[in-house]
């Protein structure tokens, strides 16, 4: 959970100062900060449970790509605003269902993080859903870009529901709620859901990340690795 929010938070923060409108710029920065805040909680808890004296910063800045357990979807590059918002919509839709399930987790710390995050992510999903509908059902140009973004990112959807031993909840069980929100949104956005169920796997198990993650981590980690005593 923490690696996915970290990688997506870092990706989104690259839009700061570059978004198509001031209002979108601030909104994306807010969402990025929400995700980084959630990362501090998840990775802080992970470091605490691991018991090897690694805090959230150590886990974020001193691990290499093969040690990351994020979904492949979130490490995909920003490309244009349409791809960024489609990636956000697909992630938010999964993320909200995952957090809703985790609010009932038997571990009190996990449940507490989920209860805090679920409020933020409810808004994230509302915003990205509205944007996908507005752009999908917008001009010929915006519609084409959103359909192409969906087709491009679709092979990274399946991994979100692939079960593995480290899952905090039954990920496959989240699929019906995801599919329902997806279908309603795509229909309103006049977009066509791809029929293929092919899924790239290997992000959240760390077995096979895409080439994009290493490049992103190099940028993200350079400062604390070059200047280990730096404080900020």
């Amino acid at each position: 959970m923490g690696d996915s929010t970290l990688v997506l938070g870092q990706r989104l923060s690259a839009w700061c100062g570059h978004a198509p409108a001031l209002e979108e710029d601030i909104a994306l920065a807010n969402i990025a900060l929400d995700l980084i805040g959630q990362t501090q909680l998840w990775l802080g808890l992970a470091g605490q449970r691991e018991g090897k004296d690694r805090d959230a910063d150590t886990l974020a800045f001193h691990r290499d790509a093969w040690d990351f357990r994020n979904l492949l979807l979130v490490e995909q590059p920003n490309r244009d605003f349409g791809v960024t918002m489609m990636r956000q919509f697909l992630f938010d839709t999964w993320h909200l269902e995952a957090l809703r399930a985790l609010t009932h987790h038997t571990d009190a710390d996990i449940s507490a993080i989920a209860q805090k995050a679920v409020k933020e992510v409810t808004y994230h999903r509302e915003r990205s859903t509205d944007t996908v509908i507005a752009l999908g059902d917008g001009t010929e140009e915006s519609h084409a870009r959103m359909q192409s973004a969906l087709d491009r990112l679709w092979p990274y959807v399946g991994e979100m529901f692939e079960a593995d031993a480290d899952d905090l909840t039954d990920m496959a069980a989240l699929r019906p709620a995801f599919d329902a929100h997806l279908a309603a949104t795509l229909s309103a956005a006049t977009l066509t859901q791809p029929s293929s169920d092919f899924a790239h796997l290997g992000g959240k198990t760390g077995v096979r990340h895409t080439e994009h993650l290493g490049h992103m981590l190099a940028t993200m980690q350079v400062l604390p690795r070059s200047y280990p005593d730096a404080k900020w």
Partner: peptide, 20 residues
């Protein structure tokens, strides 16, 4: 003030720009 495509969008933008 702010720019937005419709009323819902304006509410969301207001939330992000003015109630941080």
């Amino acid at each position: 003030s702010l720019h937005a495509s419709d009323a819902e969008h304006a509410l969301q933008n207001a939330r992000d720009v003015y109630t941080r």
